Amino acid sequence: MKIVLFTHPSFLTSQSMPRFAAMLSDGMEERGHTVDVLSPKPLFFNIPVPAQFKKWFGYIDQYIIFPGTVKAKLSSYPKETLFVFADQALGPWIPLVADRPHVIHCHDFLAQQSAKGQMPENPVGRTGVQYQKYIRRGYLSGKNFIAVSRKTQADLHDFYGSVPTVSEVVYNGLTGEFSKGGMAKMRERFSRQTGIDCSKGYILHVGGNQWYKNRQGVLEIYSAWRSLRGPDIPLILIGAKPDERLMAALKKTGYMDEIHFLSGIDDDLLKTAYAGASVFLFPSLAEGFGWPIAEAMASGVPVITTNEAPMTEVAGDAAFLIERRPANAALKGQWAKDSALVLDQVLKAEEQARENRIDMGLENVKRFDSKKTLDLIESIYLKVLEKNI
């Protein structure tokens, strides 16, 4: 099978999308298929201009230069070629090949929902609304979709207005070897490499500064928990450097010396961080899938997450659940206190109860096997190509 894989340009800052695209490309090549990867080159984007113009110059590369490049290549691809889009956000390119066999992977519709005013935590300006309409017009020309969760599939159907010709759910597979290790050893190693005393344990969060990751909520829960006079173990947040808003929230906690943001760490240190954590705290407002939930469970760590899909899809019955952080500012304090009680319960659980929950998590993540994920995706690709749809 000849596959042409469209991916986000390398000059964007996403971390999960390149990982997903690499999984598709490498996985299909390992299965004997030929894969060409197409993405815009940073031509206008590399022109030295003030930062506020960078995005717009990147749009020229993506939506003016790149489509012309693709059109020039299309005639060289044989009739039996399958065109794959790594993300529905690449919608503006989909009309280029909508009349040829194609598959569109869907991760989340949070930007689309925000543009329609459905996410009060993430208001969108006029240009953002128009941009999301532009993306939507593109992916609505497609017919064959694979969603990473049933929640994402339901959102797709909502925006599509019906069920597309092909609409499948294939859960993400874990990439990398996450496994349960000796906790004391992992904590000692993590402490040595970071300079943070984690010998008594630590609370871990993994995620970026995106609004839906709710890092501010993580700080609020930790502060509320410390007010319960729990043990003085640190909070570790791994991901992007905190932005100004998050730094302001950090200063309000009163625990600046015990809250640590780590960015730019390698995969080995991330795996060590998971394996040594006392608990993994993941109170996301929304997700497309929620990789860190599965990664933490595979590392033998109890997980606390939000009691809404798709977090509940990924966590199954193995996680401790808390309410979604309310948009109403007057209710956020009580939410933090209620969530802190759950955190306290997990941290004070008897050893056998903790191990039972860890075992449930290890069993749960067997569903997210990368080989199985790629096998299912391959079968859908072949079906679409065979039926020429």
Rank of each mutant, 00 (worst) to 15 (best):
T69V: 12
R245W: 11
G254M: 09
I3R: 00
F261K: 00
P101N: 12
A309G: 02
S191T: 07
M256A: 12
G142K: 02
K252N: 11
V166L: 05
I304Q: 07
V365I: 12
P302A: 04
Q334L: 09
L321D: 08
A336D: 13
V218T: 02
I47F: 14
N328V: 08
T69K: 13
A22V: 08
L262Y: 05
T272Q: 06
M119C: 12
I221C: 01
V129T: 04
S299Q: 06
S278V: 01
I104K: 01
C198I: 13
K251E: 13
I358C: 06
P310Y: 14
D197K: 00
N209Y: 09
E177M: 04
F44K: 00
L343K: 04
F368G: 00
D344V: 02
I380W: 10
K366N: 06
L270Q: 01
S179L: 09
N46A: 12
E323P: 03
K200Q: 13
V346A: 03
N214R: 09
S149L: 11
K371S: 12
S227T: 10
G195T: 01
Y274V: 03
D266L: 02
D266C: 01
Y160L: 05
S227K: 15
F11A: 00
D87K: 04
I389P: 00
M311Q: 14
I47C: 10
V166A: 06
Q52S: 08
K79T: 08
T81W: 08
Y222M: 02
Y131H: 15
A98S: 14
D197Q: 03
V384A: 07
F66P: 01
P9V: 03
Q130S: 11
G239C: 06
V384Q: 10
L250M: 11
K71Y: 05
D268F: 03
A224P: 00
P101M: 12
K383A: 14
G288W: 11
R100C: 05
M297W: 10
L110K: 06
A298K: 09
L343D: 07
I259Y: 11
G181C: 04
G161P: 02
R137T: 07
I47R: 10
F282R: 05
L237Y: 03
K2P: 04
P42M: 06
F320P: 00
S25K: 14
F261G: 00
L43W: 07
D87L: 07
N46W: 10
F57S: 02
I203Y: 02
L74F: 13
